[in-house]
Amino acid sequence: MPIEGGLDILNRFTFVFGAKVFIVLFLIFYAFFSLMLHRQIQFMSRKLPTVLNPHLRFLSILNIGVAIAVLFLVIGLF
């Protein structure tokens, strides 16, 4: 029984660790994706200036900021 209990804790720890690694890698990928999106918006804003572009640029910067902030929070708190 104690051995089974120990294995259960080990499985749970492995699952949580796996989930954390997956989420951290996912957020790193997402941060790069949001950077690329921001660059595209900057580029297209130069090509085709419209009244909505400053708002889109702001949203894309916010998106990068949130992605990086959540990445560090997940590393520290998950």
Partner: peptide, 15 residues
């Protein structure tokens, strides 16, 4: 945290 990351992804996809 899982849900937060998921909805950030959904926002990114929508954007």
């Amino acid at each position: 945290w899982v849900l937060l990351v998921w909805y950030i992804f959904v926002f990114g996809f929508t954007f």
